[in-house]
Amino acid sequence: MISLDYFLVPAGLFVLGIYHIWLFITVLHNPIRTVIGLNAYTREQWVFSLMTDPLKNGVLIVQTLRNNIMASTLLSTAAITLCSVIVVFVSSESSFDSTVSVNSVYYNYTPSLSSIKYLCIMLCFLVAFLCNIQSTRYYAHVSFLGTVPTWKDKTGFIDYVAATLNRGYYFWALGLRAFYLSVPLFLWVFGPIPMFVSCCVMAVVLYFLDTTSIFAQLVHSHLNEEEAKTDDVEAISQSLSNSGRENFQLRDPLLTRSG
């Protein structure tokens, strides 16, 4: 049975690792195909639309960020609570082989496979706790930065606020991935076969959760085309108005002379 642990457990982690490497490359090169990239673009547009008038939309910004902070706080609390429970459980079941001699007492401790399993689960929850804490930190920064009225119509500052908001979401997503990874590690307690099967099933499920549908990609591309057309129309109308104003200034003296 230990030989299966040595083979199936690394194989299951390898499957999840390969999937997340593919997801990372896809987010970098084709973000519209993934939910992470599409949501990041949507958050940028949300920040730009609300920061055009921070005095009017400040309450909406703070309320939305408060909901995100509450979600991160809930996950971080659950993670540190589960870590404490695992520590108490492992410490109560740990056994030491002691050898008493004449002068001193020696404690020979050999960690068992079950202790290694619980340690891996605890590390997952610790990573989830730290990531959610960082997510709360970035959301708290955005709650101040997004309501500054002097940053109105300043694209560089608004880009910084949008990037800070996306960093908070990325840390929240990493914490959620740590929770997902804890499920196969929990099933590892019942054997390496359930752990390997759960890793394969989770990779398939995460693929459908992380990728966008063709309809969403078409809607996004259509919105980009409409936005480009709107910008072109505004530029053309502005150039026509400027040329019309120049023509009126040229014709006006002739009209006054003929009159």
Rank of each mutant, 00 (worst) to 15 (best):
M1W: 11
M1D: 11
L4C: 06
D5V: 03
Y6I: 01
P10M: 03
G12V: 03
L13H: 02
G17W: 07
I18V: 11
I21F: 13
L23K: 01
V27E: 14
L28I: 15
N30P: 04
N30Y: 06
I32M: 10
G37M: 02
G37S: 05
L38Y: 02
A40L: 06
A40V: 06
E44V: 04
Q45K: 13
W46Y: 03
F48E: 12
L50N: 05
L55H: 08
K56C: 06
L60G: 03
I61A: 01
M70A: 13
T73E: 14
L75R: 08
I80H: 11
T81I: 14
S84L: 15
V88M: 09
S94W: 06
F96H: 14
S101D: 14
V102E: 12
V105S: 09
V105M: 13
S114A: 11
C120W: 00
I121M: 12
M122E: 11
M122Q: 12
L126W: 04
V127S: 09
A128F: 09
C131N: 13
Q134S: 07
S135I: 05
S135R: 10
Y139H: 12
H141G: 10
V142H: 06
S143R: 10
F144H: 05
F144Y: 10
K154E: 06
K154H: 07
L165P: 03
L165C: 02
G168H: 00
Y169N: 06
F171H: 07
R177Y: 03
V183W: 10
P184Y: 02
F186D: 03
W188S: 00
F190E: 05
M195W: 10
S198Y: 07
Y207K: 04
I214Y: 09
N224T: 13
E226Y: 09
K229Q: 12
S239Q: 14
N242D: 08
N247T: 12
D252V: 02
L254Y: 02
L255E: 11
T256A: 05
